[in-house]
């Protein structure tokens, strides 16, 4: 490159830079005027717009997520109960496993599950990889044996090829779970109206939803349902204020909650606080799926966690706020 042309290109670069800098300044100035400064120090955080994703693993995981070979009689897959198009649930009280067996707890959504600090209602799995193994061998869910699953997958050359490309150790229970985990990592709902509101766009949610949010804080709901997932980062007793379970109505082992994991009396009827991110779309509610509507769930929460009968209007406002928490189902990284 001759010296003259070098100087010329430097000059162009310089102009380009100043244009960029100027427009940055301009955008900043705009944002002060329009007031799109993000809300800070709020108990709820927006879901990040981008994540690091291993797309090869995620792609393989997606295939496995929909793979019926994982079940004992090749009838169901993960997606049977966690329907991505239905906000990651199946809408039933408790899901149906192989041979028509009905489970005891309500299938939670897989959407945004990467933000939960532990998995399952009682938090018995530390992460999604550990969780992904659970249902495969659960006799009333997929009812399989790992050796069989691996053997079935190995018969499919495309699986063998895909695993060998990614994992040194090929197809193992660990790599199957890892791939599914990587797929589930992509399942986040971003840019919800409420997240937009948090990012400083005041008009992103309605007046009713704003009212709902402030009630959500005033009533103290936000003490447990906070953080990026609006829940999913702590344990709390169901019936913290007024006992929800009595000896009479404790029917299921699952009703004992975290006690099943720790055998500590303090954990009796204690559950992972569920995320409210897509709660508006994942009826029925609670660990046993015993409550049909969001409004009833809010009433029960007020009754048993607060000892308070909430007014019709407040209930509706809070429900409207919860609606605003659901974003687009988008696979980040795509």
């Amino acid at each position: 490159m001759s010296r003259a042309s070098l100087r010329k290109s430097l000059c162009i670069l310089g102009i380009g830079l100043s244009v960029v800098l100027f427009s940055v300044d301009f955008v900043c100035a705009q944002s002060i005027v329009k007031g799109v400064t993000p809300r800070e120090n709020e108990p709820i955080l927006p879901i990040p717009l981008h994540h690091e994703v291993n797309s090869a693993k995620a792609k393989l995981g997606e295939q496995l997520f929909h793979e019926t070979l994982l079940s004992g009689d090749n009838s169901i897959s993960c997606a049977s109960c966690h329907n991505i198009d239905q906000y990651g649930v199946d809408g039933t009280r408790s899901s149906v496993g192989i041979e028509g067996q009905v489970g005891t707890v309500n299938a939670p959504t897989v959407l945004n599950s990467r933000f939960n600090f532990a998995q399952f209602w009682d938090g018995r799995a530390e992460d999604l990889k550990e969780q992904a193994k659970g249902p495969v061998t659960n006799p009333i869910e997929m009812g399989s044996v790992w050796a069989d699953v691996i053997a079935k997958l190995k018969k499919d050359k495309s699986y063998v090829q895909a695993f060998d490309n990614i994992y040194e150790e090929g197809i193992t229970p660990d790599t199957v779970a890892d791939a599914i985990k990587n797929y589930e990592y992509t399942l986040t709902t971003v840019n919800s109206p409420f997240d937009q509101y948090l990012r400083g766009f005041d008009d992103a949610i309605t007046e009713q939803q704003k009212r709902g949010y402030s009630l959500f804080k005033e009533y103290g709901c936000v003490a447990c349902h906070q953080g990026v997932n609006v829940g999913g980062n702590m344990y709390q007793r169901m019936g913290a204020f007024i006992p929800y379970f009595t000896e009479k109505n404790t029917k299921l082992k699952a009703d004992l909650g975290r006690y099943n994991v720790t055998k500590d009396d303090r954990d009796l009827h204690v559950f992972k606080v569920p995320s409210l991110r897509v709660a508006a779309h994942t009826a029925p509610y609670f660990h046993d799926g015993s409550v049909a509507t969001l409004e009833e769930a809010i009433d029960i929460m007020a009754r048993y966690q607060l000892g308070y009968t909430i007014s019709r209007q407040d209930n509706k406002d809070i429900a409207a706020f919860i609606q605003s928490l659901s974003g687009e189902i988008r696979r980040s990284g795509q």
Binding site: G220, A223, Q236
Partner: peptide, 24 residues
């Protein structure tokens, strides 16, 4: 860590009540 879990639950309960009390 298990103490931390208890702490979180207790802090949430205390805050829940405080918030609610102000309102009520």
């Amino acid at each position: 860590v298990s103490l931390i879990e208890q702490l979180k639950a207790k802090v949430a309960l205390a805050r829940n009540s405080s918030n609610f009390l102000l309102r009520t």
